[in-house]
Design a protein around this nucleic acid. Structure first.
Length: 559
RNA sequence: UGGGCCGUCGCCAAGCGGUAAGGCCCCGGAUUUUGAUUCCGGCAUACCCAGGUUCGAAUCCUGGCGGCCCAGCCA
């Protein structure tokens, strides 16, 4: 797709200015710092596009991948693997700069001793509950911990013994010595280290104490010589702490934290906690369920990296609260696939049509464009046979003049083939259901318009004999309300029960049986469909990534 | 209620004292063997509100109002 040029935003403005002013000697270093405790979602894509994107826009700009793995209780290698796959799939490259906060556990520990030596940190014996009590509230200042004035020697001794495993989990923490009366709760002597006898996915059992995010993040940034540390708005209140920590220590570089608003999307949820709940409960089939807003879910659904990048460009970067309409995401996919997706005809709900004017056993090969606007994509061959299938909804016994498809006694064009006329409607005598149509074709209408009359409608079809049977999965939003985050109760119980519709007995052009996992196909007149990994050679399964824009059904249902 | 941040079209979002970009949606119309695509045209006398400064304000000042975030030994 022709990707739009990257527009400026307040972060790019700041960076351009810093670069112009030779701040950090004109270096630009960003980082994408996921915690490996879940799969990446479209909100992360926004951050990835920003961090890797802005680095790529400047000569010498670099973006690191850094796993923020300071809490072994929640983290797992499964997630570090999926995260790397997703970032790469999105089209970004950290080259040889894959780091982990856990790479810095040793220096982090040394810096903590340094803080103690400077009287800027102390070991606190308060329990978690007590600490909460001492912290005060939003409107009342906190109280100093009784341990706050311990001597440097005692603090150092205690901290070393914390590390050595002399105290049980949770017994003590190392705290920054800042200001228990600060109006900013984050500055009320925040915890820096906690005791956790948990195996870490990379450091194993080497450490019994683990640094907190607030302590580790800024130092990790500085050690990597990150110049611009971009994060979401909820960390705005942490910036004074981020700066405080860097101010106390003698570090090689001085990063600057800048915050932007996180992405919200209509009809879905974005918090890892909620997404995890959906996965664990089984209401979705996994992190890559095509209804999920995860990168892996979007990929399985049929979204392309290009379309997701374009989406991220479209939404921009700002500090305003936002909730983006999901039609924008769909538009980005459609506009990507419109230009390069191969076309095919598929009938989801088949209605048998017999063309009586064609002889028994008739087969006519038709060479048709893979993409009508792009000849370079070549031709494919389809076969017209006496028996074909059309879409059930493309026939009505009676209809208003607005209905441009086939009606009893009326004419319609078979896409890429002839105009046919419906002579007879065969019904099941018991149920009255339409089971078959008998039609005649007009032999003069292949690649030519009929003379003396106009046939407005064009419908897709597939040969009854030259086709394969398979399955289509049609998706609707996971939630029926635009703001599911506002819903009360368990998120798992709020999921739209009709968010997936499995249609079996679909008919596809034969080549789709063995189609690879490349770009989604456009099923003409229906939408873009992506082959699912549940497919088998004799039973293709296609996910509808997105439908075609459809003003007709919208207007008709409107009345 | 303490602190931080945000408020420009239905949804994103430019704008940085000189008289409201752009995209999405939406509405017309043209072309069309996909009711798709493409193409033309329309879509904020108005920037949360109220005052003030100024020749001139979405932009500066003052005061309101509304929304989001923070009281994890999560990130």
């Amino acid at each position: 797709m022709t990707e739009s040029p990257q527009a400026a935003d307040f972060i790019r403005d700041i960076i351009a200015q810093d670069l112009a002013n030779q701040v950090n000697n004109g270096r630009l270093q960003t980082r994408f710092p996921p915690e490996p405790n879940g799969y990446l979602h479209i909100g992360h894509a926004k951050s990835i596009c920003l961090n890797f994107g802005v680095a790529a826009e400047h000569a010498g700009g670099r973006c690191n991948l850094r796993f923020d793995d300071t809490n072994p209780e929640k983290e797992d290698v499964e997630y570090v693997d999926s995260i790397q796959e997703d970032v790469r799939w999105l089209g970004f490259d950290w080259e040889d700069r894959k780091f982990y906060a856990s790479d810095y556990f040793a220096p982090l520990y040394q810096y903590a001793e340094e803080l103690i030596l400077k009287g800027k940190a102390y070991v606190c014996d308060l329990s978690a509950a007590q600490m909460r009590e001492y912290r005060g509230t939003l409107t009342e200042p906190g109280r100093n911990s009784p341990c706050r004035d311990r001597s440097v020697e005692e603090n150092l001794d205690l901290f070393r013994r914390m590390r050595a495993g002399e105290f049980p989990d949770g017994a003590r923490v190392l705290r920054a010595r800042i200001d228990m009366a600060s109006p900013n709760m984050n500055m009320r002597d925040p915890a820096l280290y906690r005791i956790r006898r948990v195996e870490h996915h990379r450091t194993g059992n080497e450490w019994l104490i683990y640094p907190t995010y607030d302590y580790a993040h800024g130092i990790s940034d500085a050690l990597e010589c990150v110049t611009h540390s971009l994060c979401t708005l909820e960390f705005e209140d942490h910036r004074p702490l981020y700066d405080w920590i860097l101010d106390q220590l003698d570090l090689p570089c001085r990063p600057r934290q800048i915050e932007f608003s996180r992405l919200s999307l209509e009809y879905t949820v974005m918090s890892k906690r909620k997404l995890n709940a959906l996965v664990q409960s089984g209401v979705v089939s996994g992190w890559d369920d095509p209804r999920m807003p995860t990168i892996s879910g979007l990929r399985r659904r049929g979204y392309t990296p290009e379309s997701i990048r374009e989406f991220c460009r479209c939404i921009g970067i700002s500090k305003s609260p936002n909730r983006v309409e999901h039609t924008l995401l769909e538009t980005c996919l459609r506009s990507d696939l419109e230009t390069r997706s191969p076309r095919t005809m598929a009938v989801l709900r088949p209605l048998k049509v017999v063309i009586d004017s064609l002889p028994e056993g008739f087969e006519q090969p038709l060479s048709v464009a893979v993409h009508p606007q792009n000849e370079a994509m070549g031709k494919r061959t389809i076969f017209l046979t006496r028996e074909i299938f059309i879409e059930q909804e493309d026939f009505r016994e009676t209809a208003t003049k607005q209905y441009k498809r086939l009606v009893a006694g009326g004419e319609v064009r078979l896409r890429n083939a002839y105009v046919i006329r419906c002579r007879e409607v065969i019904k099941d005598p018991a149920s009255g259901a339409i089971v078959e149509l008998r039609c005649d074709h007009d032999p003069e209408t292949l690649n030519a318009n009929p003379v003396g009359r106009k046939v407005a409608g064009v419908i897709h079809w597939v040969s009854a004999t030259r086709s394969v049977v398979g399955e289509a999965r049609l998706y609707a939003p996971l939630f029926t309300v635009p703001e599911p985050d506002a819903l009360k109760g368990e998120i798992v119980e709020q999921v739209n029960p009709d968010s997936v519709e499995i249609v079996t007995g679909c008919r596809f052009e034969p080549e789709l049986a063995g189609a690879g996992g490349g770009l989604p196909y456009q099923f003409e007149r229906l939408g873009y469909f992506h082959r699912d990994r549940d497919s088998t050679p004799d039973h293709p399964v296609f996910n509808r990534a997105v439908g075609l824009r459809d003003v007709w059904s919208k207007n008709e249902s409107r009345g």
